[in-house]
């Protein structure tokens, strides 16, 4: 009964999301896996691979790039579709459909909170894009195949192993498989909210996040947005966010669009209707009116938007360490490509 009550307490959108993840897991993974089998692959490897084609090898030409695209063209089409939907609707693939991250999340949500690791406080943008550059650029060079740390193959293999198929069992008992399995547990099942792999290591998520941030700059696209005039800075959404994407800046919730997955967790939690998945922030009637509380007209506790006063920031001349690290990551990536392409040409 306690479990039933717990399930009943889940907000509607989240129930919907969990069921969609379940359906996609069933259709992409394991004994059914009918979507991969339509293509002729029984797992998410081969023509379905979405992750390998954009790797950079020193001395690579555009011809090589197109060969890579040709080899896994279905995966490339799927990846392009994901990016397109992300631009218009936020990272719905990641939060609603992705069978790999979704399975880890569902597993994590079923476990007791006591035995979990809180990863959300780590500087995830820097870690993610730092690893992303390593993944794109350094790992191919070092000969570590990008497939070695691919979670898109770990979970299908895990399910194959549960079925008793030899390929999965051998993979899991191989040394690479063991480490992948460990990562799945630590960054998946035992991570708080279960999305640590998505936050830190997933290259598709990293590329998706960049597009998400680009899309959020336009008015007509659907993204998780905050209405500054409504936000009380109560931190409820920040605590509920499974990606740790929300942080209070001057008592107003600010969504980090690089990390936000549009999972609607924050929308369900907010009492003031301040955070929404909308094209652009707009005024609306409050979702619920509390006893003896009137929100309109403007409440006197309304937070003040401090973003309009940039002069004080410039005057302080503080070195913004986060921006410095971001710049280092980008410059490392670009200079590495420039240097190696020149070296390969010579």
């Amino acid at each position: 009964m306690r479990i039933l009550n717990n399930i009943k307490a889940i907000p509607f959108v989240q129930k919907y999301r969990y069921s969609v993840i379940l359906i996609s897991s069933l259709s992409f993974l394991g004994p059914l896996a009918f979507l991969p089998q339509l293509v002729g692959n029984d797992d998410l490897c081969g023509v379905l691979c979405m992750r390998r084609f954009y790797l950079y090898f020193p001395g690579m030409t555009f011809e090589d790039f197109f060969t890579h695209i040709n080899v896994a063209f279905i995966g490339v089409i799927a990846f392009a579709l994901i990016l397109l939907t992300t631009f218009f609707y936020g990272r719905l693939w990641c939060s609603f459909l992705c069978p790999v991250g979704g399975l880890a999340e569902l597993g994590s949500r079923m476990l007791n909170d006591r035995w979990k690791i809180e990863f959300r406080a780590l500087p995830q943008v820097q870690i993610r894009y730092g690893y992303f550059t390593v993944y794109l650029v350094l790992m191919p060079l070092l000969g570590i195949s990008a497939c070695t740390l691919c979670n898109f193959i770990t979970i299908p293999r895990l399910i194959e192993a549960l079925q008793g198929e030899y390929r999965g069992i051998v993979y899991i008992v191989s040394s690479v498989g063991l480490v992948n399995l460990g990562l799945l547990f630590i960054l998946g099942f035992f991570a708080s909210k279960g999305r640590a792999y998505c936050q830190f290591l997933c290259p598709i998520g990293a590329a998706d996040g960049l597009v998400n941030r680009l899309g959020a700059k336009f008015n007509f696209t659907h993204h998780i947005r905050v209405e500054k005039e409504r936000c009380t800075g109560c931190n409820v959404c920040a605590r509920a966010c499974m990606c740790g994407a929300i942080q209070m800046v001057d008592r107003v919730a600010v969504v980090d669009q690089l990390s936000c997955m549009s999972c609607h967790d924050c929308v369900d939690v907010c009492d003031w209707n301040a955070i929404e998945w909308t094209p652009a922030s707009r005024h609306k009637e409050p979702k619920r009116i509390k006893k003896h509380v009137q929100i309109f007209p403007d409440p006197n506790w309304q937070s003040i938007n401090v973003h309009d006063q940039p002069k004080t920031h410039i005057a302080s001349k503080k070195v913004n360490r986060v921006r410095l690290i971001n710049g280092l990551i980008v410059s490392f990536f670009l200079s590495f490509i420039a240097v190696t392409s020149v070296m390969a040409m010579a």
Binding site: P58, G59, M60, T61, E63, D64, L141, G143
Partner: peptide, 10 residues
């Protein structure tokens, strides 16, 4: 084709 550069020895 990129495999032939010494940078890609791996």
């Amino acid at each position: 084709e990129f495999a032939n550069t010494p940078l890609n020895a791996g």
